[in-house]
Nucleic acid binder design. Sequence first.
RNA 1: GCCCGUGUAGCUUAGCUGGAUAGAGCAGCGCACUUCUAAUGCGCAGGUCACAGGUUCGAAUCCUGUCACGGGUACCA
Length: 580
Amino acid sequence: MHDLQTLLEQRIRTATAAAFGDEHAAIDPLIRSASNPQHGDFQANLAMALGKKLGQPPRKVAEAIVDALDTQGLLAGVSLGGPGFINLTVEPGVLAEHAVAMLADDGGGVPRAGTPQTVVVDYSSPNVAKEMHVGHLRSTVIGDALVRTLEAVGHTVVRQNHLGDWGTQFGMLIENLKDAGFDPQAGASAGELTALYKAAKKRFDDDADFNTRARARVVKLQAGDEETLAVWRALVALSNDYFETVYGRMGVKLTRDDVRGESFYNDKLAAVVGRLDEGGHLKESQGAKVVFPEGFADREGEPLPMIVQKSDGGYLYATTDLAAAVYRVEEIKAARVIYVIGLPQRQHFQMFSTTLRQCGWVDDAVRLDYVGFGSVLGADKKMFKTRSGETVRLVDLLDEAEKRAAAAIAEKNPDLPGSEAAAVAKAVGMGSLKYADLSGDRVKDYVFDWDRMLALDGNTAPYLLYSYARIRSIFRKGDIAFDGFAGGQVSVAASAERGLVLQLLGFGAMVESVAQSLEPHRLCNYLYELATRYHRFFEACPVLKSEGELRDSRLALCKLTALTLERGLGLLGIEVVERM
RNA sequence: GCCCGUGUAGCUUAGCUGGAUAGAGCAGCGCACUUCUAAUGCGCAGGUCACAGGUUCGAAUCCUGUCACGGGUACCA
């Protein structure tokens, strides 16, 4: 069965072609949800634009389309409004049929992409030998939500964790570790690694002798000195252990198999520069090897170069990013590469993607998407830091989220058994943290605020999770197995039922649109609106107290709402709970 | 200087790519509970969509300029 909106579009297109000729058969009917429920369920906004094109009054155009419109078996009412809005009211029976079909659909009404693609998503990207911090939160959470959404519409997603696992800082790190008598076999905690990193940095800045040895160590590392590499490998392995525990706690779908760190491209960098040279794109400027992507200027208005090889022969992140893009397009054969990286790196992305196009390494058929996001701010609207001005560790945020959620649950529902309360606190805490990050337009900064993200009202995870739990509660109360309830017929009579069903039926289109726009906050808004409509339904339409077919119908709507909340939240990486 | 982004109610924000009266939540005021966990729902009040022009049937949305804040602007990532 086709998506309801698609059916409406087809009818309007057919009517438009009948009224004004076949050249309009492909017109976009601009079907939207009705701006006001009094106008109907949907509105078609094409008449105004078409009127202008045809030189006819839009109202006349709309009338002609309506006259030609086939309403049979779909529409219960059609009317005109304003300058030429076509208001559409769907037959209740059609809404009911679609709801039944959606309930029976394993995919939850999410259509599979017509042409599944291989999509690379580059996200999270923490640094080896350092703890993850608040700066990694958004990339990790947003990237994970996008991965899940793209998979849901049928794409093959290849996750890429572009670890910071190479570079000059490893010279001082390794040198310091060797001084400290570090045993690569023994291991160390993430906290210890961070302390060692800080100590190394301090010595590097303060101690001239150490500085010299650290530089020499970098050379050894790059030359493949086995003793040096052994320490480096141990560091990477320890960090991966740690990253996996953090991702596991967060429920993020990243493992060490997804790691393609900077070191992975190490042996491909010279070739990248060589290829640039062969293609005639490489220039020499002030001793460095550079390319000039078109359209970028420096302070003086001169063409801004992207340096791919320093005057001392070293490579930079631009080189690595070019190599990574080539790998993703040529080896992984990605049709789309998505970079989930903070806004400060936007220009860098634009420079290397321009270079990739300019060199012809990535043709127009391959899509390169930059998913930028704003900063996490503290209450003072500056970068989020601890009271003492330190970077906030990611695990501290996870701990705090669970702790605060546990306190809220203990207060609101003291009857929950301890073990379940702990599991619920984990889900609510993690969900709240993620949802707060996902629910606003990602390009905007947001102020980190525990009270708001854990609030029980408004567009928050607890509100949505509670809505789900309340539905499950109805099934428990009625002694009806949730999973086993298949649902039979659905009737859509009350306005609250109609409002709920219309929202439910928009789920698939919403997921599709997020897979395109890469804006998870739209899905958040959708789910919030769904929960709101459910609560209105819940207030107006008794479920267990109604009888017979009506009861079954309402149970079916409850179940479909619960499944849709669960699926939608699942796409955001958020787990539901049956009680809270 | 130049480039990019942001600016919507006291606060936090949405606005489906130009459509009908700019929607929510919090905070404030007023209703509705022998409940399907009220962790809710309904109502009232609250807007110069930063500012000024422009485009057109129609602008928070598009174009120009201004202001404020943030970011970027060659050998860090």
